[in-house]
């Protein structure tokens, strides 16, 4: 599973970080940097929650 990140849409809501702090790393301003994210098996549920939690639709799931 991968999470595709459209960093240009990220506005720093940090909902992904709340659900999956080990997966989503926020920069000093509190935004995601560009770069898709590989999801280890034990983080799949949190990754799904994170993707569904993004108000900007900046994240998409690839399975």
């Amino acid at each position: 599973m991968r999470v595709k990140v459209d960093a240009s849409k990220c506005q720093g809501h940090a909902r992904c970080w709340t659900w999956a702090p080990n997966l989503f790393h926020l920069n000093d301003e509190g935004y995601l940097d560009p770069g898709d994210i590989d999801v280890p098996e034990n983080e799949e549920l949190n990754a799904r929650r994170a993707v569904k939690g993004c108000p900007e639709r900046a994240l998409t799931l690839e399975e």
């Binding site: 506005q11 809501h13 569904k52 939690g53 108000p55």
Partner: peptide, 20 residues
């Protein structure tokens, strides 16, 4: 409720700076 991408803090570049 888990699926909750609400807009209490707006969308877009003016997303509430103080939201956290």
């Amino acid at each position: 409720r888990e699926d909750n991408r609400h807009v209490a803090f707006a969308y877009g570049p003016h997303r509430c700076l103080g939201s956290h």
